[in-house]
């Protein structure tokens, strides 16, 4: 049963975090370089952090980076860890965490479909939610959904006055 401080010492000793922060009670966020994130995942998994809630992706358009956040939880310490890393937006390539958590394959497939991030080693990245979608991955910040909708669909005209203007 570690508390937040002991956990932080463990992380500082074993992994080279760029930034560590206790956000709230039972919530810790750790920032790492992309190259040693997968190694950190397997390290934490062996230290009772077996539950991978989900993998989130945030598109920082101005800084030209995708931020991948891995949410782990331990059934002993009852602490949430959000492992963050930033990868370049242009190539948008990252390794898969499939070997550590097989379920990550579907979270990565989801991120690939909505952000276009390539996960090396995960061969099952084809379309799942959308159906024959030829445009920009929709969750990127530079995809404007209102402009897309205006030219894709016409609006119902209530005797002359359009619904949106």
């Amino acid at each position: 049963m570690r508390n937040e401080k002991e956990l932080l010492e463990l992380i500082n000793v074993h992994l080279e975090p760029q930034a560590v922060e206790i956000k709230r009670e039972q919530n810790v966020s750790v920032e790492l370089a992309p190259k040693n994130l997968i190694q950190a995942l397997s390290f934490l998994k062996s230290h009772s952090y077996q539950h991978l809630s989900t993998i989130s992706c945030v598109d920082w358009l101005e800084e030209g980076a995708f931020e991948l956040v891995y949410h782990l939880f331990s059934y002993d310490d009852y602490i949430n860890i959000s492992l963050k890393t930033r990868i370049k937006r242009e190539p948008g390539i990252f390794q898969t965490a499939k070997e550590i958590w097989p379920v990550a394959e579907f979270y990565e497939r989801d991120i690939h479909e909505f952000f276009g991030v390539e996960f090396k080693g995960n061969d099952n990245l084809e379309e799942m939610i959308l159906e024959n979608w030829q445009h920009l991955p929709p969750m990127r910040k530079d995809f404007d959904t209102r402009e897309f909708v205006n030219d894709q669909y016409e609006w119902r005209d209530y005797n002359g006055q359009k619904h949106t203007d």
């Binding site: 959308l130 929709p138 995809f143 959904t145 209102r146 897309f148 909708v149 894709q152 669909y153 016409e154 609006w155 119902r156 619904h163 949106t164």
Partner: peptide, 16 residues
């Protein structure tokens, strides 16, 4: 189903 309703600006739903 009439004009897209609450999801009027969603890229994946039909409007009419």
């Amino acid at each position: 189903t009439i004009n897209g309703g609450m999801y009027w600006d969603s890229y994946n739903t039909i409007k009419q």
